[in-house]
Nucleic acid binder design. Structure first.
Lengths: 188, 188
DNA sequence: ACTACTCTTAGTACCTAGTCATAAGAACTC
DNA sequence: GAGTTCTTATGACTAGGTACTAAGAGTAGT
């Protein structure tokens, strides 16, 4: 037997939701009603026509592409630096940095902030990370501001190594520490 | 003066490439030719009509979504996984991952691949990194393909910790190792 | 100068997947 | 049986095309 109007419209919504590429004709066939009925339904439910639906899917994809490019680029903003001594950077945790399920920042973003600060503090053309010993003390959540402080512990000119300690805080609470052993580029 | 046919078709290609949402009429206006000429050009260049272009953009987005839902949270692409045992992912180093000056991959990308593989291999709602001991053995360069292999070393049910070792290779050469101590979410 | 050829433009018929408006029949509810 | 809602049909119109035919403009070869 054919469904009631309400039932049909409910199903119509979810059908289009998970397949926006379906035409009115296909829907009419599916629900055993006329094409006109489907169109009335869409009108009542404010569901745009096939072509508009496809277009908006395509546009969203375009937006996403523009958005996801610069994410990897910036790993915190350096607000203070004294080369070969210390440096401070801030990093605001946004939607794109957290696990969706629990809003906890993914470890590699917190690491990336610390690591790139360790690279920046070194007064050299370019430093590379050789080793790191890191510890995540407590998880960082969405919208928290992480302040990373790097301190150069020791410079071994002979071996071309520099040891940097980075501590990251949220509201003065320690959330991460890392001891980095860095190559100096002249030794690379 | 108006461009030659070849020039116009070259430009037409790139114009549509970076904005598939442009109509023949807009193109005709842009190149100061008739709509029919644009259509002949598209025919010669095998460029589909606006609606087909939009549709294919939308479809690609859909494909991506299906593909990227389970993997999205992982840096690099997982190609093999046995939960609580081992996993393998590949990560191609592109322009956006390297220092411009020397084409060497930034450490945090290599770390991110290893770290997220360590998260993925754990058979649990969600794992978090507690500690990590990492070593960059040799630098990874632009266009190299990093293959990370994660191995679960020990599961401490009582403490809710899992120990994972990750080794990353480029052409069978070890470039990175990391020992990760992971929280299990039930203990979080 | 005439022919041959490419390039461009115009026009017609047709298509899909719709919109909007009007009308009328069918099915329920009071 | 009347009133209301729901469904279907019909006609006119739209965007953004395809496919095809036809004709004029410009250039090159002989």
């Amino acid at each position: 037997m054919r469904k009631s109007k309400k039932e049909r419209q409910q199903l119509l919504m979810s059908t289009i939701q998970d397949n926006p590429f379906v035409t009115d004709e296909e829907l009419a066939e599916k629900f055993q009603v006329s094409v006109q009925t489907i169109r009335l339904d869409r009108l009542e439910l404010s569901i745009p026509e096939l072509r508009e639906r496809i277009k908006s899917v395509a546009e969203k994809r375009f937006d996403d592409e523009v958005k996801s490019l610069p994410i990897e680029e910036v790993i915190g903003e350096i607000i203070d630096i004294e080369l070969d001594q210390n440096a401070i950077s801030i990093f605001d945790v946004k939607e794109e940095h957290v696990f969706k399920r629990n809003q906890i920042a993914r470890g590699h973003h917190v690491f990336a902030q610390a690591n790139s600060l360790a690279v920046a503090v070194i007064n050299d053309e370019l430093a590379l990370t050789a080793k790191a010993n890191i510890q995540f003390i407590r998880s960082v959540k969405l919208h928290e501001r992480v302040i990373a402080k790097a301190k150069v512990e020791k410079i071994d000119e002979a071996k071309g190594r520099t040891f940097v300690q980075v501590r990251s805080f949220v509201n003065n609470e320690l959330v991460f520490t890392g001891d980095f052993e860095m190559y100096r580029s002249n030794n690379q």
